[in-house]
C-alpha cells in the first residue's frame, strides 16, 4: 500500500519507491532521507485539508511530505 494510506501513528516498512514518470530526482532525495527498503517509517500526523504528512524515518529523521509523493512510497504493515 502507499504510505499516504497509513493512519496517524501507524508504522510501516518500506518496500520500494515507485518512480514517477522520469522523475529520478524524487527517488534520489527520498533515498537520501533514509527511505530505503525494509526501513521503518511512521506517519506521525496528517495535516488537514489535504496537507502534507509528517513522517518519521528510522528513529531520528522527520520530514514533511505531500500525499501525492507519499503515495509513491510503497509500504507494508506488519
Amino acid at each position: 500500500m502507499g504510505l499516504s494510506e497509513l493512519k496517524a501513528g501507524q508504522v510501516g516498512f518500506v518496500e520500494s519507491i515507485q518512480p514517477h514518470h522520469s522523475n529520478d530526482g524524487l527517488v534520489h532525495r527520498l533515498e537520501a532521507m533514509g527511505i530505503l527498503p525494509d526501513r521503518a517509517i511512521q506517519v506521525l500526523r496528517v495535516a488537514w485539508f489535504g496537507g502534507p504528512l509528517h513522517v518519521r524515518i528510522g528513529t531520528t529523521t522527520e520530514v514533511a511530505i505531500r500525499r501525492h509523493e507519499a503515495q509513491q512510497i510503497r509500504v507494508k504493515v506488519c
Partner: peptide, 11 residues
C-alpha cells in the same frame, strides 16, 4: 510546478 515536496523537520 512539478517539484517534489520533501522537507526536513529538524528537532
Amino acid at each position: 510546478n512539478e517539484d517534489p515536496f520533501v522537507l526536513e523537520l529538524p528537532p
